[in-house]
Design a protein around this nucleic acid. Structure first.
Length: 908
RNA sequence: GCCGGGAUGGCGGAAUUGGUAGACGCGCUGGACUCAAAAUCCAGUGUCUGUGAGGAUGUGAGGGUUCGAGUCCCUCUCCCGGCACCA
């Protein structure tokens, strides 16, 4: 055995060993229970980044742990290979997206392999390959025929200079990122997935996902946004015709407080009103400027303009003015809203700005006064009292000059017109029922359940994506491409130019004949949203090379659902919702069983690093990579400044931010692997933070991780002979462990206590404290090297057992060094097939325990007592304690609280 | 703006879920080894106060519940993720 830890050699050897053994091949014929461990598919951006290393290490730790726990593990890997960055890289380097993507994949695959991940590479899937996307096209045609996919128009960001549709991230401050032109909204036809048809099921299904973080389920629930409201109409007459302006509200109880309505700029009513109103026309044009991103629309200044049209309040008959509002979106609900400034903060702001009426009609209970006439009596009335007497509400409760959140809360109705007196005194929810009934009688409205979730538009006017398998025929309409003509292959030798869709400029692609009538037809040139590929890849891994269908049904049944899914929290809503949706689509096609694709979900947070910069002469920030900077500290370790290593001159310390090109604070994992080895990189990643917290990069922390592995190696090297003796001498059996005493017994207890904690923590996916437990075990073993000078043998079983425990516990995190030492010390050939270490419960038993003494909850001392001392004894001992006596000063204790095994609190 | 999170020493974080705050690691300080340095090992290290035993104080800010609060409740501040065409 070598005396020094040389990660390069041992990692290469271990990886070769696994490769030769085909150690990570998932077996279809295993009798063991299956465990499908999946990390979110990476986008092949070029180089592995720290986020990948973190994600895949977490996955690998779980995969290896479950393997040792006796599962038949499948951990696959693939590439989410379509997408925008490839087009951008293509334009920048004049290389086709396909070539760029494939070369990135080759490089990243080598990098992943050097991390020592236990991946079954025989299942590799690449989404831009026709063998993969042909099944996506197949499903598309099936869903198109079933009506799950349909066509309608949608609003997109339009760059009028480049004549191209822009992604939201390509719109910067309302301008196109390349052209700098002001972006406009434009309506174009698109294909949509009818995800709203599954809204209820997607919502209900969340309740079955016990293995998902509550926060993710909450986010999805809110995103789906089921609401119970009332859809109703404001009648009006236009050009002699009777019309209705439909709106939807969840607060029908406030209907008496409606003082205006607001419609979207694209609403027919707005269009009509603008005909003879140039000012309004100009305003509507203004509303069409800017992008479609909801975050921008929601944060922009709310503006409006009257249409001059009024509608009739369906209950009171009042005339209600209609405004055009830039914050009302045509794609939501009806494209029109009722406005109740008194009870909606946004409407309140709008009304204040334009001097519109504010009319409170719902008040909290504290605003109601007894009608007996004791005006100054602030006593609150009861609901029963409210119902009995004429309603009196102190008008001072509402201040028309200043919004308070209270105004939007549920309360009790008041101030209704005489014809609706029955409304007064009703609670908000009763009022909703009352009003819904009234509206229904007038045939002007009804209760309605609505979802916030919208149908999923998947058409993209881009080149590097899966072609939509539709042929447009002037006689037959939109015709899906028949199975035997799939896949519609995307040509791979194209370099896009950023202006419009390249496929639409390629007659060789779009010229075709109609599959139905054989007439001349035009192929669809839009491609699919790349979220589509990543919505079903998890199922493809079960049978990655299946040529007869999207999945092999039997393989899918064997491997699905995914037992553990791991990925970034940023995917909490869109990707995870779309994948859940796709699973139900595939289920309804009879391809997969079960209702949900991912049984357990772990959402990992991002990797951040410090930032450093200098201001250049133009006042811009020049970002400097952390590896080029040296931070100076004072003698307490507080940072006092930083200098550039190259010139020794100061640099400015910025904040700690997500590793990103724009801040030049990325640390290349390859450099870390090259310098310290994969095990060190993995160990640091697992130790620095629990998965769901952001992880701060630290060079010093990496060195600490490396130091730990060196210590582990040194210990194993120094104690190899002890392990050899242990295996040779039959007297070191389990009976020996039970008669140990003194320091060896103590050390053995510590090791088992640490193991117990580690097993608990691995179960709750908190790997940083698993590492900390390993560090404690190592420390104990290092200390045990010093046991007794003459009775050296007493340490033998502790060392042998302890090292065995430590290596197995650590092996999912740092597999290479553990495999090497496992074999070198003679525990076995393959640590992968060793069983997971179990706690020796007998070792944990202690005769005496330490209890903490508190006085009034404050720590005042401690006490060593027999482990089974009874409560009365403990109380006596606590009262007799020196510190307690001092504080009692002769008085008596009011109360004594004994928490078994923890503390005694004397209250005085 | 809306939805979901987070905040604990100089730093990353721990506290088995209401019971000894700061485990483990980094950094820093002192010491050992060395001609010297690196590496390694040993000891110390929240803050304030005290020669010391000790005392006081302390988990973003402010209030509350409790014998006892980092943990539960209310109000607020700042930071992060998502917002439907980045993936």
């Amino acid at each position: 055995m070598q005396p020094d830890y040389t990660p390069k050699d041992i990692e290469a050897a271990a990886q070769q060993h696994w490769e030769e053994q085909q150690a990570f091949r998932a077996r279809e014929d295993s009798p063991k229970p299956k465990y499908y461990c999946l990390s979110m598919v990476p986008y092949p951006s070029g180089k592995l980044h720290m986020g990948h290393v973190r994600n895949y290490t977490i996955g690998d730790v779980l995969a290896r742990y479950h393997r040792m726990k006796g599962y038949n593990v499948m951990q696959p890997m693939g590439w989410d290979a379509f997408g925008l960055p490839a087009e951008n890289a293509a334009m920048a380097n004049n290389v086709p997206p396909a070539a760029w993507t494939y070369s990135n994949i080759a490089h990243m695959k080598r990098q992943l392999k050097s991390l020592g991940l236990g991946i079954d590479w025989s299942r590799e899937v690449t989404t831009c390959r026709p063998e993969y996307y042909r099944w996506e096209q197949w499903l598309f045609t099936r869903l198109f025929e079933k009506g799950i996919i349909y066509k309608k128009t949608a609003t997109v960001n339009w760059d009028p200079e480049d004549h191209t549709v822009l992604a939201n991230e390509q719109v910067i401050d309302g301008r196109g990122w390349r052209s700098g032109a002001l972006v406009e909204k434009r309506e174009i036809p698109m294909y949509f997935f009818r995800i709203t048809q599954y809204a209820e099921e997607l919502l209900q299904g969340l309740d079955t996902l016990d293995g998902w973080p509550e926060q993710v389920k909450t986010m999805q629930r809110n995103w789906i946004g089921k609401s119970y409201g009332v859809r109703f109409a404001f009648p009006y007459t236009l050009d002699g015709k009777d019309e209705k302006l439909w709106v939807y509200t969840t607060r029908a109880d406030t209907i008496m407080g409606v003082t205006f309505c607001a419609v979207a700029a694209e609403h027919p009513l707005a269009t009509h009103a603008a005909k003879n109103n140039p000012q309004l026309t100009a305003f509507i044009e203004e509303c069409k400027r800017g992008g479609v991103a909801e975050a921008d629309i929601a944060t922009m200044e709310k503006k409006g303009m009257p249409t001059g049209i009024s509608v009739t309040h369906p209950l009171t008959g009042e005339q209600i003015p209609v405004w055009v509002g830039n914050y009302v979106l045509m794609r939501y609900g009806e494209g029109a809203v009722m406005a109740v400034p008194a009870h909606d903060e946004r409407d309140f702001g709008f009304a204040k700005k334009y001097g519109l009426a504010i009319k409170p009609v719902i008040a909290p209970r504290h605003a109601f006064r007894s009608s007996i006439g004791v005006a100054e009596n602030e006593k609150l009335v009861s609901v029963a009292e409210l119902r009995m007497k004429p309603i009196l509400v102190d008008p001072a409760w509402f201040d028309k000059n200043k919004w308070r959140d209270e105004y939007a809360e549920f309360g009790y109705a008041y101030g209704s017109p005489t014809s609706f007196e029955g409304l007064n005194g009703l609670s908000s929810s009763e009022a909703v029922d009352f009003i819904a009934t009234e509206l229904a009688q007038l045939h002007l409205g009804e209760k309605k359940v609505q979802f916030r979730l919208r149908d999923w538009g998947i058409s993209r006017q881009r080149y590097w994506g899966c072609p939509i398998p539709i042929v447009h025929c002037t006689t037959c309409g939109d015709v899906p491409v028949p199975d035997d003509q799939l896949p519609v292959v995307l040509p791979e030798n194209v370099v896009p130019d950023g202006a419009g869709s390249p496929l639409a400029k390629m007659p060789e692609f779009y010229e075709c004949t109609c599959p139905k009538c054989s007439g001349k037809a035009r192929r669809e040139t839009d491609t699919m949203d790349t979220f589509v590929e990543s919505s079903w890849y998890y199922a493809r891994y079960a049978s990655p090379n299946c040529t007869t269908g999207m999945v092999d049904k039997q393989a899918a049944q064997q491997w699905l659902p995914v037992d553990q899914y791991i990925g970034g929290i940023e995917h909490a809503i869109l990707h995870l919702l779309y994948a859940r949706f796709f699973h139900k689509l595939m289920r309804d096609e009879g391809l997969v069983q079960g209702d949900e694709p991912f049984k357990n979900l772990l959402t990992q947070s991002m990797v951040v690093a410090p930032t450093f910069y200098r201001d250049d002469t133009a006042g811009r920030k020049l970002w400097i990579n952390p590896v080029e900077v040296e931070v100076k500290t004072d003698d307490r370790g507080r940072p006092v400044g930083a200098t550039l290593k190259a010139d020794g001159q100061p640099v400015i310390i910025g904040g700690t931010e997500k590793m990103a090109k724009s801040k030049n604070n990325g640390v290349d994992p390859q450099a870390i692997i090259d310098q310290y080895g994969a095990d060190t990189a993995r160990l640091f990643m697992m130790f620095a933070a629990p998965p769901d917290q952001q992880l701060e990069w630290s060079d010093a922390g990496v060195e600490g991780a490396f130091r730990f592995l060196k210590r582990l190696w040194n210990l194993a090297h120094a104690k190899k002979h002890n392990v050899t003796i242990y295996f040779k001498d039959p007297s070191f059996n389990d009976a020996y462990l039970s008669i140990m005493d003194g320091e060896p017994k103590n050390a053995y207890r510590e090791i088992n206590a640490a193991l117990k904690q580690a097993n608990f923590d691995i179960g709750r996916l908190q790997f940083n404290t698993v590492v900390s437990a390993c560090m404690k075990i190592l420390k104990t073993l290092e200390r045990s090297m010093l046991f007794g000078t003459s009775t050296a043998n007493t340490q033998v079983p502790v060392i042998a057992k302890g090292l065995s425990t430590l290596l197995r516990l650590l092996s999912p995190i740092t597999p290479h060094i553990c495999q090497t030492l496992w074999k070198e010390l003679g525990y076995g050939d393959d640590i992968l097939s060793a069983p997971w270490p179990e706690v020796d419960k007998a070792a944990l038993v202690q005769d005496e325990i330490e209890l903490v003494i508190q006085v009034n909850g404050k720590l005042r001392g401690s006490l060593r007592v027999a482990k089974d001392a009874d409560k009365a004894t403990l109380e006596q001992l606590a009262l007799a304690h020196e510190a307690v006596q001092k504080l009692l000063a002769g008085g008596t204790a009011k109360k004594i609280i004994v928490v078994p095994g923890r503390l005694i609190n004397v209250v005085i």
